[in-house]
Design a protein around this nucleic acid. Structure first.
Lengths: 186, 186
DNA sequence: TGGCTAATGGGACGATCGTTCAGGTAGTTT
DNA sequence: AAACTACCTGAACGATCGTCCCATTAGCCA
């Protein structure tokens, strides 16, 4: 419990987060394959050695980026679910709209998220972070809804991945009937 | 229309396919990030320059690998659907078993497929190949079933991706209720 | 048999990579 | 003020990368 925060550490932490943000931008633009100490440093506007100082290796940098990204995803999808619920039977509209947004304006971000997701499949130490947002969401629903909710989340993932290889992003209108069918109770 | 096939070209084509197969093995083991001319050549047991001779660039090699992989996926999932259908209400068992297999013994292959899938999201020239197996399968079903089938395929994709970040692969027993719910008609 | 072409493979070049190191700066503590 | 610590950064090293070049081999055709 520190009362007087160290100004040096504060600046260091700030730069660390800038580097993480820059890494995410690089992944959005060029994919995980485009992440090097130098490209990230250039993107962040810092010297190359700064990325090696704050992250002991490139792997550490990707790990930190995934953790940061997963936290954002969790809160984001949390509010999506919340909004969809509050709109009741209009939930499909809400979800379809958000999917269209994720596949349109935010397409790069969506690709980055799934690339980091697959990275977690190969690196066990990343899995807790990648799984966290799934766990958070699952804990939101009633216990007897768990299976239908797992199906819902799986369907969302599948629609996003398939939407990423369309020549032009699917519109909310195209997605709505599929989402509605996915949400329809049995 | 050649009547007498050129023996040289035949050997060349054979080696070309060996290189593609080796590339897929490298992706299964180390991911797309591990694909270099040298690693692929070593895996295939050919000199380094052989991969640059048969493929004008690394991109071409990955493109050819994805196309080959997508063809296999299409036929594979085709028979899965066929078997699931013939077993009627027992289709969920069939599908759950195949998912467990894809996430267990064939886990590396499944990761490779999704990595190539995401590669297609970034390279437009790859999208037709990546989409082909979706199209083939969609053409299998009756027109009025299209939406439920799209939901089914999306759910499969989502279950596979989420299963890839589990610490231990989910068993067929764990997957069966989810698959059954996914298949249940509304 | 002698040209012709496709496939093969050894070697090397320049570029870029991850990472290290040592010197320099600025904030904190005594 | 002095000692200490944390952050910063330019330069460089060795490894590895994609790709090219050129000599050699082997199957084809006239």
């Amino acid at each position: 419990m520190k009362m007087q925060p160290d100004g040096r550490k504060a600046r260091g932490e700030k730069r660390r987060e800038e580097i993480i943000a820059a890494t995410l931008r690089v992944i959005e633009r060029d994919g995980v394959a485009g992440v090097t100490h130098r490209t990230v440093a250039t993107e962040a506007g810092v010297p190359t050695t700064s990325t090696t100082y704050h992250f002991s290796s490139l792997d550490d940098l990707l790990v930190a980026t995934l953790i940061s990204c997963a936290r954002d995803m969790a809160t984001e999808v949390y509010w999506m679910i919340d909004r969809a619920r509050s709109r009741g039977s209009r939930g499909a509209d809400e979800v379809a709209g958000l999917l269209a947004e994720a596949l349109g304006p935010r397409r790069g971000r969506t690709m980055a998220e799934y690339e980091l997701y697959l990275l977690a499949a190969r690196k066990p130490e990343l899995r807790p972070a990648a799984r966290r947002w799934l766990d958070v969401l699952t804990s939101m629903v009633r216990h007897d809804d768990e299976i239908s909710f797992r199906v819902f989340l799986a369907g969302i993932d599948g629609l996003l991945i398939q939407g990423l290889i369309d020549d032009e992003p699917p519109s909310a209108d195209e997605l709505r009937p599929v989402v509605a069918y996915l949400l329809k109770p049995r």
